[in-house]
C-alpha cells in the first residue's frame, strides 16, 4: 500500500477552489431565497466547511459511494451533483431528484453511488459500509465509500456501530468528521470528553488523519492520502478536520451561542478567503481573475434559479402515494 501520494498541483487546487466558490455562491443564493420565503423547508449551510467537503468529494471517482451530510453542498458538487438539481430540490420543483418527497440536504441518487441521507446522524456510516461490502462480494475492488459527519454525529450509536463493523471487515470506508465546534448549539465541551476526536480512531483500530479544515491545501492532501489508503486496502480511515461553522445551524438559527473568541482562533478562518489568498500569493491567479470566476458562478446560479422557479411543483394528485415498489401490496385504507 505505500504508493506515494501524488502532490496537489496548481491545477488540482484551482479546480477544487472553483467547486468551493460555486458552492459558496450557490449557498448565498439559497440563503437569500430562504429570506425571500421561496425555499420549501429549511436551509442548512456549509459556510466554512467547503474546503473539507470539496476535498472529500473531489477525491472520489465515478463508481465510488458518497453519503454526504447536511453541510456538504461543496462535496456534493465535487462528486457530480449539479446546481440545477440542488435548486430544483430547494425550490420544490417537480423535476428534482426527490420529486418533492424529500428535500434539500436529503437529496441523492443512490443508483449512482450518491446516497440520500436520513436525518438520524450516523445512520449513513453502516449504510456506506454495507454498500462497500456488497461491492466486495460482487468481486469489485478499488472502490471507496465516504461519508461525512460533524462532531455531534460521533456521539451516536450508529457512528460507533458502523465504524466498528466496517473496521472488522476492513472495508474501504472513509469517515470525514468536520469538527465545527458545535452540534446545533451544543459546544464540544458537552459533546465528548476525549482530548481529540481523532483519539477515537485507535479505539476502532482504524487509521486516523488530522486536517486543518480552514486550509484547502491541507484538506486536499489529507483526503487524497486517506482515500488512497482506503482504495489500496488499508481499511477504514477516520479524518477529523478542525474548523468553525461560520453560520447558524440553519438559516432559522440566530447563532447566539457562538463564542465570539473562536472566530479569532485558528479554527475561525474562512476557508474560502484562505484559499483565495493562497492562490494570489502563489501567483496562480490575480484577485481580478477570482472576481471574474465569482461572477461566472453567480451567473450560473442566478440563471438556473430563474429557470427552476418557472418549473411546476409536485402534484399531489399525480403522486401514487406508494411506499412499496410492489403495487399489489399497496393497501387502500377506507378512511382515506
Amino acid at each position: 500500500m505505500s504508493k506515494t501520494i501524488a502532490p496537489v498541483t496548481e491545477s488540482d487546487y484551482l479546480k477544487a477552489y472553483r467547486v468551493m466558490l460555486l458552492s459558496r455562491v450557490l449557498e448565498e443564493k439559497l440563503a437569500s431565497l430562504y429570506r425571500a420565503g421561496m425555499i420549501k423547508g429549511g436551509v442548512f449551510l456549509g459556510r466554512g466547511q467547503e474546503a473539507l467537503s470539496t476535498a472529500t468529494g473531489i477525491h472520489l471517482r465515478k463508481g465510488d459511494i458518497f453519503a454526504p451530510l447536511i453541510r456538504d453542498q461543496a462535496g456534493r458538487l465535487a462528486f457530480g451533483d449539479t446546481v440545477l438539481d440542488t435548486l430544483r430540490t430547494y425550490l420544490g420543483s417537480q423535476l428534482g431528484s426527490m420529486r418533492g418527497r424529500d428535500g434539500n440536504i436529503h437529496r441523492g441518487r443512490p443508483r449512482e453511488g450518491y446516497y440520500a441521507m436520513i436525518s438520524h446522524l450516523g445512520a449513513m456510516v453502516p449504510a456506506v459500509a454495507g454498500g462497500l461490502l456488497a461491492r466486495r462480494l460482487r468481486g469489485e475492488s478499488g472502490v471507496v465509500g465516504a461519508t461525512c459527519l460533524g462532531d455531534g454525529g460521533t456521539s451516536t450509536g450508529a457512528f460507533h456501530e458502523g465504524l466498528n463493523a466496517a473496521a472488522v471487515d476492513k472495508l474501504p470506508l472513509v469517515v470525514v468528521v468536520a469538527n465545527n465546534q458545535y452540534a446545533y448549539s451544543t459546544p464540544n465541551s458537552r459533546q465528548y470528553a476525549c482530548a481529540d476526536l481523532l483519539d477515537k480512531a485507535a479505539g476502532y483500530g482504524v487509521a486516523g488523519h488530522k486536517a486543518d479544515g480552514t486550509d484547502l491545501l491541507d484538506c486536499l492532501q489529507t483526503l487524497r492520502k486517506a482515500v488512497q489508503a482506503a482504495r489500496e486496502g488499508g481499511g477504514p480511515q477516520l479524518v477529523v478536520a478542525s474548523l468553525l461553522r461560520l453560520v447558524g445551524h440553519g438559516e432559522h438559527d440566530d447563532f447566539s451561542y457562538l463564542d465570539k473568541n473562536l472566530k479569532k482562533t485558528a479554527v475561525g478562518a474562512d476557508c474560502l478567503l484562505v484559499a483565495e489568498k493562497y492562490i494570489v500569493d502563489q501567483g496562480w491567479k490575480t484577485a481580478e481573475n477570482l472576481a471574474e470566476w465569482r461572477r461566472e458562478a453567480e451567473q450560473e446560479v442566478n440563471t438556473t434559479a430563474d429557470r427552476v422557479r418557472r418549473e411546476p411543483s409536485p402534484d399531489a394528485e399525480e403522486d401514487d402515494w406508494a411506499a412499496l415498489s410492489r403495487s399489489e401490496y399497496r393497501e387502500q385504507f377506507a378512511a382515506v
Binding site: 446516497y115 453502516p126 449504510a127 459500509a129 454498500g131 462480494l137 456501530e161 458502523g162
Partner: peptide, 28 residues
C-alpha cells in the same frame, strides 16, 4: 464460503449495512 458473515453485536450496523448492500443490488 464468504456469504454467511458473522456480525458484531450491532443491530443498527447490521441493518444499515444490509440497506447499503441492497442499494448496490445485493439481497441480504
Amino acid at each position: 464460503p464468504g456469504r454467511v458473515l458473522d456480525a458484531p453485536l450491532s443491530e443498527d450496523a447490521i441493518v444499515g449495512m444490509a440497506i447499503g448492500a441492497a442499494i448496490e443490488g445485493a439481497r441480504p
